[in-house]
């Protein structure tokens, strides 16, 4: 063996090939089989993709680096289930490009955040966290009250559709209009949002002002959607703990 290596050291291409082979095996064994998951893990029947407004909110969430301090992955450990809610399923993030499971909880996990707090709480908390939670160490995000640039949402959804997210032609065609309508419940378009994305979509003036579409509307809509795209995790929990 030593002799073999003694000779290998004289061949730069030999080392290159050796390194590539040795470093490829592990990845191939662990990653390749995961692509058969598409066939073995079913997407729940009631699963819906994010609405245009929620998707825009997700972009704000990513832009501000929220994922650095907030995970979106409840592990199947008793204390996490008690603290946050049902453990996260693979199917819940199946349409997330990229996933936002996170790696650090400087703040709490957000996978089950939807519906836990009111819109007004979120707005006040994002503008000045310590006005609502005096000992919070979260930074303030006062600039979120500026207008949302919704011009790119349709193109973004089109790209996601090419990657397999179920945005059909009707959803793509109405992207910008749906973003506006979701935060103005009294508008004509509001019914269209519910028709295209289902009844468990929140259609509200998230920042309290239906006349203006802001980044705050988008981010709060996204935060309120977390964990609500399917009811399956809750159904599984109630089966496991009758």
């Amino acid at each position: 063996m030593l002799r073999l290596h003694y000779n290998l050291e004289k061949l730069s291409m030999g080392l290159v090939v050796g390194i590539i082979v040795a470093a490829s095996i592990g990845g191939a064994v662990e990653i390749a089989p995961l692509f058969t998951i598409d066939q073995t893990v079913e997407i729940p029947d009631d699963m819906r993709p994010l609405t245009p407004l929620e998707l825009a909110g997700r972009e704000v969430f990513i832009r501000e680096g929220c994922y650095a301090c907030h995970s979106q992955m409840v592990r199947h450990l008793a204390d996490e289930i008690d603290r946050y809610g049902p453990y996260s399923l693979a199917s819940e993030s199946a349409w997330d490009h990229p996933m936002l499971w996170g790696s650090k909880r400087t703040g709490p996990d957000l996978a089950r955040l939807g519906g836990k707090y009111s819109d007004a709480w979120h707005v006040a908390h994002l503008i000045d966290p310590r006005a609502v939670v005096p000992t919070s160490i979260m930074p303030a995000y006062p600039w979120l009250e500026r207008s949302l640039d919704a011009s790119d949402i349709g193109a973004q959804m089109g790209t996601l559709a090419r990657l397999g997210v179920p945005y059909d032609d009707a959803r793509l065609a109405n992207a910008a209009a749906d973003a506006l309508a979701q935060s103005s419940p009294d508008s004509d378009g509001a019914a269209g949002v519910a028709e295209r994305y289902g009844d468990n979509v929140a259609i509200r003036a998230f920042d309290g002002d239906p006349s203006r579409l802001t980044e705050m509307d988008a981010l709060v809509a996204y935060l309120q959607s977390l964990g609500t795209q399917t009811r399956l995790p809750y159904a599984i929990m109630s089966e496991e703990q009758p």
Partner: peptide
């Protein structure tokens, strides 16, 4: 802006 081609559990891995 771009979207990673990986999603969900595959993306995590």
């Amino acid at each position: 802006k771009s979207f990673t081609i990986w999603a969900g559990v595959q993306d995590a891995m």
